[in-house]
Design a protein around this nucleic acid. Structure first.
Lengths: 351, 351
DNA sequence: CTGAAAGCGCTTACAG
DNA sequence: CTGAAAGCGCTTACAG
């Protein structure tokens, strides 16, 4: 490693470069920033000196002076009890796609994992650390969402070069600038493909209550499409407190007990994976006896038994929408929808 | 939103707070930083004024002056052709656990996704943006690893408060400070559990070449344990160019063609998932006819057909080791190993 | 315990 | 096209 072969020395500044190149410090700054007013010859001399000294601009100073940061802050809300392996991979994927979208816009991403029971902080713009903020979470992070909701109301001044924009995934508050999957369309798509494949007695498996806004919307899409097709809706309500997988297993039991259901639209993939697990354990033929459609597009669905048909939100679009909304703002006061598509796999008969 | 209810005004500085609290700017700085030399009464007055003005320290200025950043830079190497959904989730999980480990140490994480065919940059410490650097990638990101390898050699000066530490996951260069799974132990564990379950003709499925250091180590562990138990090793070499899943499918075909193999230790979970997919498609009984063990601990393995036994690296430990190595440095010049454990699921007969 | 002042390392009017 | 100077908003010796 380099530092062993040479004695440490202080990091060079633009003054050192100026001295070596025989120009003023301001010229160094301009030359390195690509100012068009600098001669090619001068620029070359400066660049050579900078390379020679291994000089790099100190971004703290540059940003302090400039007033901007070229950075997007991303807060990921996690449940305190989650480990990397038990956490819902959906949020990890969403984080990843936000980072990708930010990179496309030449923005670095300042990521902070926060949980409902720990310190919350989202004032990165006000602290000069970012030009915008994206918050990713599930509506169950109640305290965190209240915190961010209040933050929106509190911000009483604007930074010179930014308007302190923010965008949110998973907020239960309608008056925050949210980005969400087009859940209702997803619900409709599920019913559409299931009926096209010949299923008629299609149940929705999910929570009945109003805890999860996203689930409610999926359910509404399901109801609307069922009504449009003159089919009677059925609800398989699951216990709120168990894991998604166990909720799915219980839903499968309920469907089998009912005896007259031939397909299920399940609120999310993790739950649907639980459904499949129970159904295959019991020897029920999927998709023959019962067709199953999930929601999320989880990778695990490609290898389940059988592979899971699902409604997949366009994650790349989601990342881009969040970043754009956070940096540019959006016209509408509230939210924007991420498109979804139906992914056909073998948990549904071919149409 | 707040900005609608009040006219925008410039962000307050410590001078504004000082003015309102009737003290000097230095006192504001000290009071807010928690300096013990400030009276309780003074501190309260300052805090009240700061709250009143909604003042927050500008971190750019504070860090410029202080010389540190409280930030860890994390570079994630991605393949240019990958999308969020096609990318190996292992790296997303690892990124997540690095962020968690950093948060535990009160560090923010500056995340940058970079790919072999795009701009590479890892000089965050030199630019005053971070106190340390973690790079996560696969050995296949050849150009990127060469870049970071050279960077280590180039750094010819030290920052005043940091030594420009870095730690790497996935580097093919032995002389960089790497963190890796304990692959050899993983290979041994796989063989151990397979033989304990009564399997005798255990093949290794993976690449034969030396492309993937990690795979080579897993193979070596397998070979060593097989030798210790007096069993004859078998290699099922896979085609380098197809997808992991297809490599797995081909390996399954090869095993079936051979006819005398009763178990497989597969180089990684994605490949093992391909093995399972083909085996179940062909009606082969797993674990009855053939036992399968993968490597990685991928979430999808919990729902595959049958659920996949696997060697799981401790991801939380991996994140912590990377962060610690990057910030504190480590004693040894080269690397440290992340512990692995055997996760028993139904792709192996119960012992 | 508090204040006046220097200075971190840049960018950018302002002159010439 | 280039330079001298101001200033971004802090922290921290140095005095008292």
């Amino acid at each position: 490693m380099g530092r062993m072969t040479q004695s440490p020395r202080k990091r060079p500044t633009s003054f050192d470069v100026a001295h070596l190149a025989g120009v003023s410090q301001s010229t160094v700054s301009r030359a390195l920033a690509g100012s068009p007013s600098i001669t090619e010859a001068t620029r070359n001399r400066v660049m050579a000196a900078a390379a020679e000294l291994d000089y790099l601009v100190d971004e703290r100073a540059a940003r302090l002076r400039r007033g901007t940061t070229s950075t997007l802050a991303v807060v990921v809300l996690r449940r305190p009890e989650d480990t990397v392996r038990s956490a819902n991979p959906f949020y990890q994927e969403l984080l990843y796609s936000v980072c990708e979208a930010a990179a496309t816009r030449q923005l670095d991403t300042l990521v902070s994992l926060q949980s409902d029971d720990g310190d919350l902080s989202g004032r990165y713009v006000e602290q000069g650390q970012a030009d915008g903020l994206v918050v990713i979470g599930s509506p169950t992070n109640v305290r965190a969402w209240e915190y961010f909701h209040e933050l929106e109301a509190d911000t009483s001044y604007d930074s010179p070069d930014t308007i302190g924009h923010a965008a949110y995934w998973g907020t239960p508050h309608e008056d925050m600038r949210w980005v969400r999957a087009d859940n209702a369309t997803g619900g409709r798509l599920a019913v559409r493909h299931l009926t096209d494949a010949g299923y008629r007695s299609i149940a929705y498996a999910g929570s009945d209550g109003n805890v999860q806004q996203q689930f409610r919307e999926r359910h509404e899409g399901y109801l609307a499409e069922m009504a449009d097709r003159g089919l009677a809706p059925r609800m398989i309500a699951v216990d709120q407190d168990s894991s998604r997988e166990d909720q799915g297993r219980a839903a499968a039991d309920a469907v089998l007990a009912a005896g007259d259901v031939d397909a299920m639209f399940v609120a999310c993939d993790r739950m649907a994976l639980g459904v499949l697990d129970r159904l295959s354990g019991l020897g029920t033929n999927v998709p023959g006896d019962i067709g199953v459609v999930g929601f999320d597009g989880m990778g695990a669905g490609r290898f389940s038994n059988p592979p899971l048909s699902t409604i997949e939100p366009d994650l790349a679009a989601a990342g881009k929408m969040l970043v754009d909304a956070a940096i540019d703002g959006v016209a509408q006061a509230d939210g924007v929808r991420v498109p979804v598509r139906y992914v056909a796999r073998s948990s549904v008969r071919s149409e």
